[in-house]
Simulated scan of single mutants.
Amino acid sequence: MADWDDLRVFLAVARGESLSRAGKVLKLDAATVGRRVARLEAAMGARLFTRSPQGYGLTDEGGRLVSHAQAIESEMARAHDALTGAGEGITGQVRIGAPDGAANYLLPQVVAEIVAENPALEVHIVALPRVFSLSRREADMVIAVSRPEQGRVIAHKIADYRLHLTAAQSYLDKAPPLTTLDDLPAHRIIGYIPDMIFDRELDYLSDLGIDQPPVASNSVSVQLNLIRHGAGVGVVHDFALPAVDGVRRILTDQVSLTRAFHLVRHADDRNTPRIERFAAALVSGFRRELARLEALAERA
C-alpha cells in the first residue's frame, strides 16, 4: 500500500517530468526521488513512468494514478487548512500560471499586496505564453484569456481589458503620416509570431487584415519593448502602457479591442479554504489594479 509521502514524490515527478526538477521542488536529491519512485512502483505492482533521454513520462497506469493522487493531495490541503484555521492568514504555496502580459504588468503588484498581508504564504508566478495543464498540476490556478471548454475545472471571469494600436513618439516623428487605418500598410507592424499564437483571442492583427507582421515575438513584453524602441506599430494592452515612457495609443477612434481574463482552477480545489481565500484576494486585487492602470493609460 502506498503512503502519502511517496504519492507526493510521484506527483512532483509527473509534473516536472524529471527526477531533478522534482527534487528541486521537494528539496530532495534526484537519487532519493528515484528510489521513492521505485518504491512506489513496487508497492503498486505497476510501472508508473517511462524513462527516456527527454525525461519521465507517465505510463497508462501512472496516468490513472494521477487523478487519485491529486484527490488525496486536495484532501491533505483541506485538512491542513482546517487544522491551522482561517484566522492566521493564508499559508502554504500557491502557483499561478499566466500569459506574460498579465504576469509582467499586473500580477507583481497584486501578489506583492497579498504576500504583505500573508507573510507565511509562498506564491510562484509561472509566466509562459502557452496553455497550462491544471490536470497535471502545472499550476494551482491559471489566468486565461479564453474560458476552458472541457476538463474538470471551474472558471470565473475576472474582468474585461482593452487593447489599442500604439507607437513610440520617436517612431511617429520620423514615419509616414498615420491618421487612418488606410495608412497602416506604409508602416512596420509588430505582433505575435503567427505559428506561436497559443490562443485565438490573441490573434489581434487578423482583425486588421494583417497575417504576417514583419517584426514579431511570442512575448508581450518583447513586443512592447520593440515598440518603445521605435521598431514600428503594434497592438498593446492598455494596462501595460503606464510601465513604459514615450509610447502612446493611436487611432483610438478606429481600433479598440476588448478581451477578458478568466481565473481557472481545478474542480477538486472548490472546497479548499486556502485556495478559495487566495483566489478571492487575487481577483479583487487584479480588478483594482487593472482599473487603475487602464485609467492612467486613458489619461496619457
Rank of each mutant, 00 (worst) to 15 (best):
R270L: 12
N225G: 06
L282R: 05
V131G: 06
G232F: 11
V111I: 15
D140M: 06
T50R: 15
L128I: 14
A280Y: 02
I72K: 12
V233Q: 03
P242Q: 11
S206V: 06
T272V: 14
I114E: 06
R35E: 00
R277C: 01
V283E: 12
A139T: 08
D203K: 11
A168E: 04
G34N: 01
R64K: 13
F198P: 05
L257A: 02
V222Y: 02
H262I: 12
A279F: 05
A77V: 12
E41Q: 07
E294H: 08
V247Q: 07
Y192T: 05
E149H: 15
M141Y: 00
G92H: 09
A144I: 01
P213I: 01
L7Q: 09
R248V: 09
A175V: 10
L282I: 06
L296Q: 14
G234N: 06
Q169Y: 09
A144S: 15
D238H: 11
V131Y: 04
R136S: 03
G191Q: 07
V235I: 13
I158R: 03
A300H: 14
L251H: 02
A159R: 05
A281S: 15
T84V: 15
S284L: 12
R248F: 00
A120G: 02
R277P: 02
S206M: 05
L128D: 05
G45A: 09
R188G: 09
E61D: 14
V233C: 10
M76S: 13
A43V: 15
A14G: 12
H124Q: 00
Y204C: 09
D183Q: 12
Q212Y: 00
A38F: 01
Q109L: 09
M196I: 11
V264F: 06
R39P: 01
E276V: 14
D3S: 12
D6K: 07
T91W: 08
P108A: 14
S256A: 01
V233T: 01
E17Q: 14
Y171K: 03
V220K: 03
A82W: 04
L208D: 10
I72S: 07
D140F: 04
I250S: 00
Y171G: 01
D207S: 11
D3R: 08
I190A: 00
P242H: 08
V255E: 03
F49D: 02
I72T: 14
L128H: 06
L83W: 13
S135H: 10
P242M: 15
P148D: 04
P129Y: 07
H187M: 11
S170K: 14
M44G: 11
A120Q: 09
T179H: 09
R152G: 11
S133Q: 10
L134R: 01
Q93V: 13
Y105S: 02
P176Q: 01
T180D: 09
V264D: 05
L224H: 04
A120W: 06
D199C: 12
E117D: 10
V220T: 13
S221H: 10
I193W: 07
S170H: 11
Q54H: 12
